[in-house]
Design a protein around this nucleic acid. Sequence first.
DNA 1: AATAGAGTCAACCGCTGGCTG
DNA 2: TCAGCCAGCGGTTGACTCTAT
Length: 285
Amino acid sequence: MGRAPCCSKVGLHRGPWTPREDTLLTKYIEAHGEGHWRSLPKKAGLLRCGKSCRLRWMNYLRPDIKRGNITPDEDDLIIRLHSLLGNRWSLIAGRLPGRTDNEIKNYWNTHLSKRLMSEGTDPNTHQKLSQPPAPKENKRKKKQNHKAKNKNNTEDRIVPEKPKVHLPKPTRVTSFVNLPRNDSFTTASTTVSSSQDQVLDHVNNIIPWSDFKEGGVVFSVGDGSSSSDFECDQSRIILNVVAGDDDDHNLENIYEEYLQALLKTTDQDQNCQVELDSFAESLLI
DNA sequence: AATAGAGTCAACCGCTGGCTG
DNA sequence: TCAGCCAGCGGTTGACTCTAT
């Protein structure tokens, strides 16, 4: 069993934040900076748990948070990033200045996944659905399904096929070498972690080294007329995949470079997009 | 105008992984 | 090496608002 909820202490406030609490939290962080969430509430004079304070600050009070509707550009970017990163909302949010992971997660669940479904695309895999989306249900029927969400009705509940994505975070390639806690990766780990040679073989198989220029190590994508180049370093990737621990940020840099290249591409660069995607997947696997 | 279903989103929960002693 | 602590993440919940009947 997990540890007791951090907010279970008697006397701590829960639920919506009051303006007074917001002010206290904001003033404290402005004076002392973020961090030390555990001790922050006491010092700030708040009857909240640290977790709650952190969440409130990160998702609502932070001064750099962008208010207002998500623009079509952001919309498009979220979809593209989701196709690459899956449900790693914090990573996606990191590419959208001023947007929070919670906001993007909510937006995805309430808008984008439905939109993709209606366009005949599986929001989980981003593949075209073989069958067109079912016609809109009668509202009365919908209501019954919605009600089935209620805990009391879990017996009758029709659980939609929603495969869970348990990919390791892109910067944590150590999953190849060190067994992850996540059970869903047991298979992958046992197949590639038995020796570093095997890992190396695996890397050589998934990364198209022939596309890297000798020395200059420029990974070229596209058809020449509309290609995007981004620099990469075979040895750095190998090092990170094999050794794993200290230099994770190098891979992060590589990944960052990849994303920059991705963001530069336009919708006309379909070939380019496909190659970028496959490269990203190879880094993520 | 009343009611109930549907949609939205802030907040909570439980888990993971990094860090430290 | 291990256990405990902590921050951060993604999934889920539920209160509130909107909309259709």
